[in-house]
Design a protein around this nucleic acid. Structure first.
Lengths: 337, 337
DNA sequence: CTCAAATGTTTGAGCGCTCAAACCGTAACG
DNA sequence: CGTTACGGTTTGAGCGCTCAAACATTTGAG
């Protein structure tokens, strides 16, 4: 606990009676050092409480040993909570791979964000970026590919298969498929879908989730599937589902593209049931809101996704020119406690 | 956009026809450089797209220009969402002060966490730490004070006034006071409190929130205040409130120590009302759950708190021995949209 | 006109590490 | 018994910056 001068490679070397480089080798390339020497050096390291200087290493290796990730400006309501788990996963997986995670504040627009990323990379504060919340009209992947910045996206390159890059995403179709299956097991026979406007037209998260529902419902050989759309807003969702439930062929279950939609759907269902059994609602994201309402919801394995992002990045650090790789992880169904 | 060798202090200096140090001065101590020279150097910097190397600076100044903050292992249910906003606030305020924010994954226990913090500081990855979620029996502040690590806590040093340190906290009493006042304005006359077990005994977040309720209710000169306690769990809270509402002197409003408690209270209130007007519930933290249920909730000004943490830290960097300082920020009442 | 004090700029050294190349014994080979 | 080879180790150089001190140049006072 003494407040000595902090130990350096040289001070440890002197103590162990070897050269600076040998100490470094013990740490970075243990195989190069003879057994006996290694023991002695390790002892010296332990005794002196030596901690290698990160900045010095960064300077010498020209690598930051860090990745950057964006801190969202503000959680857009119900979802967004998933990010906390993502941050933790990144930090954890990063620690295991000698990578630190640095946060940058989401600025006003994409252009400003790209500037920040460039800055982080060029100043040597980060080697790579993890992009979150990517969408089809996202400029960032193309720009980063163009500028040669290493990155991994959490989210598929929707509609940009021509510009491949590393990505990790959750299999939304699989998730809604699980939801439908669960409802079928529960005996539901008319399973509707509540999605976002535009789902199904262009490739997107929404289209993907809708597809999983559609395919599973059709595979079950049930009647013509019913669906509604709404902006990601509980009130709007409630209205949309209310009209869906007032129709002649009212469904007995509703799979939703998000927990926000599920909240609205749930309200509408309870109202429409008028004391009877309301249609069963399944959400997406397994947020506390779904849990609070006692709804089943599709949970994204965020932690796993974060670890995979780190894996892809470390892989690319080692083999910079390997072809782009994408990984799809399966979600799981979360039943309320 | 050319992929030249990245510019350095020397390359810029050569281009501007001055010495290395002058370029450095232009950036760090503009006053030391003559107007004309400065212009010329700035032009050279612009033309060459020079970005100072962070690692080099860190090595030379022996400062990381970064602070560390913990990424929570897992959001404990409803609350915890606040952290996202906190991270963003830290990153934003940090950027304005030349501080980067690095994340570390919350490990299994406090001892392991302290080890990680030590490591970050000793390797020069961070100059200071922002502690989150501090509690009365928290070992971390004392340890960090002892080891001379600079830090700022988001949370008061409950019951540890003997070991002062920098902190920022939200005025919980003020928050519940606002809640009570709001209910009084609404015409409620019997305002109960739902808190956590032990609130009121020892100094703590819970005691603080309870005190705000108690003082405001007493100041209003209403009848003897009623209260209940429950673990931070919706089901437990529901049970606690149910028995509260079944009593003779059932309250017409309930102020809660958290949104999780509020959720339970809300359910109990709706059930007890049996179709009539349920008791009004006010939550704490203004999470999406409260919004989803249409509940009023006390919102913590997280962004402001984060900025204040950075202010305290930068202040301490400049004046390491100034006395410890604590800042209390007032919360605001969030009405559902 | 001289000298000292400003003012502006450069030089030298060093932060702690890693790379590549040089070095040194000793074992294996012809 | 000289030569090559090789595991193990050391040396030199340099990553890009900042500090402190040294060095010019100008200015104002005596």
């Amino acid at each position: 606990m003494a407040a000595h001068e902090p130990a350096t490679l040289d001070s440890v070397a002197a103590r162990a009676g070897v050269s600076r480089q040998t100490v470094s080798n013990v740490l970075r390339h243990p195989a190069r050092v003879a057994e006996a020497t290694r023991e002695r050096v390790l002892a010296a390291i332990r005794e002196s409480g030596y901690r290698p200087s990160l900045p010095a290493r960064q300077l010498a290796t020209r690598r930051a040993h860090a990745i950057a990730v964006r801190a969202e400006r503000q959680q857009d309501g119900i979802s967004g909570l998933v990010l906390d788990a993502f941050y933790h996963g990144l930090a954890e997986a990063g620690q295991d791979n000698g990578l630190r995670v640095v946060l940058y504040a989401q600025p006003a627009d994409e252009a400003a964000e790209l500037e920040i990323i460039d800055d982080l990379v060029q100043t040597g504060a980060a080697d790579a970026v993890v992009l979150t919340a990517t969408s089809a009209d996202d400029q960032r992947p193309a720009y980063l590919s163009g500028s040669g910045t290493t990155f991994c996206a959490f989210g598929r390159p929707w509609g940009h298969d021509d510009e491949p890059h590393d990505w990790v995403d959750v299999d939304g179709a699989r998730g809604t498929g699980l939801a439908v299956q669960h409802l079928l097991d529960l005996g539901r026979r008319s399973i509707a879908y509540l999605g976002w406007p535009g789902d199904g037209a262009e490739p997107s998260t929404g289209s993907d989730r809708r597809r999983g529902w559609l395919e599973t419902v059709e595979a079950a050989g049930l009647g013509a599937p019913v669906e509604a759309r709404s902006l990601n807003d509980a009130a709007a969702a409630e209205a949309a589902v209310a009209s869906l439930l007032s129709g002649a062929d009212a469904p007995d279950a509703i799979v939703c593209a998000s927990d926000t939609l599920a909240l609205g759907a749930h309200r509408a269902a309870v109202a429409a049931a008028g004391g009877g059994t309301p249609a069963t609602v399944v959400g997406f994201d397994a947020t506390p809101v779904a849990a609070a309402l006692g709804l089943v919801s599709v949970a994204q394995p965020i932690d796993q996704a974060a670890h995979l992002c780190i894996d892809l990045l470390t892989g690319r650090f080692e083999t910079p020119d390997r072809p782009a790789r994408g990984v799809l992880v399966p979600p799981v169904l979360h039943l309320p406690a």
